[in-house]
Amino acid sequence: MPQQVRGVIARSQGSPVELTDIVIPDPGPGEVVVAVAACGVCHTDLTYREGGINDEFPFLLGHEAAGTVESVGAGVDSVRPGDFVVLNWRAVCGQCRACKRGRPQYCFDTFNAAQRMTLADGTELTPALGIGAFADKTLVHAGQCTKVDSSADPAVAGLLGCGVMAGLGAAVNTGAVGRGDSVAVIGCGGVGDAAIAGSRLAGATRIIAVDRDERKLEWARDLGATHAVNASETDTVAAVRELTGGFGADVVIDAVGRPETWQQAFYARDLAGTVVLVGVPTPDLRLEMPLIDFFSRGGALKSSWYGDCLPERDFPMLIDLYRQGRLPLEKFVSERIGLADVEKAFHAMHAGDVLRSVVVW
């Protein structure tokens, strides 16, 4: 039987979110109903509310989530009721050209649930990133569920579902940071700080945090940055070069996604260094640079999609590292809030007061 539960929706562009009743259908073939235990408040949810993704209102927000499988549909054998899972928004198909070439992290045909969750009046909801986890329960495709150690704190585990995985993967997977490397991270919010934590985990010896906010630079130090540069007081490129013997960093990660920060990343890297763009630009932004600079500097210019992760490979491994005390994921949880507090959390995030607010049940 379909279930009526609470959910947080964005009904129209720019309007405050609403806590209302939503309807969860029984899972169909390949689908799973998950009882949500925790869900992080990500900037992408705010972007949905502001109409920055698409205009398919109303949206059921929330996507950085962990919870327990409640029921499964026909043909589901990857998870079963009672499993503790982290939800992901890139459930790979295994059949597209990227998957068949051994690059499933670039899958072109990721899965979502076929059925729609609705409002009580039958209005169909668009789940954020195909998840919609600001709700007591949500309906997803089985491939969006990754089983992890059930002893992990749900508020911590759920953050792997988006921002932490994006930043950490940008360093470890996309940037291939290795032992002895120097790394600079521009923008020290949740994604940037995850890149810093990932660089530390990978064995980088010099990790330079760049931001305009001293509070964020302090968070970055706590997560592994060895040096901090306040970009409101110092030229970023000159500072990174000075801290790397005049050469520039081996890997520079732009966690902001603006033309000026990308240019800083480009010129702050070593001659054949790597630039990784993980901050998401808006469609209107443009970049103009001398083409000769691209030719003369070599190296690699990369974009990181979801940290180029494979959830089945990466989520359990990162949870194990967290439980071993080698990856301090708990430091990303700034506050634990209730489902009715999402709008307040958006304001705290916009003000830069938190790394992550996490809704807990």
Rank of each mutant, 00 (worst) to 15 (best):
M1S: 13
P16Q: 13
V17R: 07
E18P: 08
L19W: 06
T20N: 09
T20M: 07
D21C: 13
V23D: 06
E31G: 07
V34A: 10
C39G: 01
V41Y: 08
T44L: 00
Y48N: 06
G52K: 15
D55F: 01
E56T: 12
F57W: 12
F57H: 09
A66G: 03
V69W: 04
E70Y: 10
S71M: 15
G73C: 04
D77I: 10
D77C: 11
N88Y: 09
C93I: 08
Q95T: 05
R97K: 13
D109F: 01
F111I: 04
R116T: 11
M117P: 12
P127T: 09
A128D: 07
F134L: 10
D136T: 11
D136P: 05
K147V: 15
A152W: 02
A155F: 08
G161S: 14
M165I: 14
L168G: 09
A171M: 06
T174P: 03
V177S: 07
G180Y: 03
D181S: 11
V185T: 04
G187W: 03
C188Y: 02
A195V: 14
I207N: 04
R212C: 05
E214L: 14
W219D: 08
A220L: 11
V229N: 05
S232L: 09
D235N: 14
E242M: 09
I253K: 03
D254T: 00
V256S: 00
P259Y: 04
A265I: 01
A265Q: 02
F266W: 04
Y267I: 00
R269D: 04
D270Y: 00
V275I: 12
V276T: 04
P283D: 08
D284S: 05
D284V: 05
E288Q: 12
I292L: 13
G298V: 08
S303C: 11
S304R: 06
G307D: 01
R313D: 14
F315S: 09
M317F: 11
R323S: 06
R323K: 15
R326T: 06
L327T: 07
P328H: 13
P328M: 13
L329I: 13
L329A: 01
E330N: 14
V333R: 05
D341K: 12
V342L: 06
V342W: 08
A345Y: 02
A351S: 03
R356V: 05
V359D: 10
V360L: 12
W361K: 14
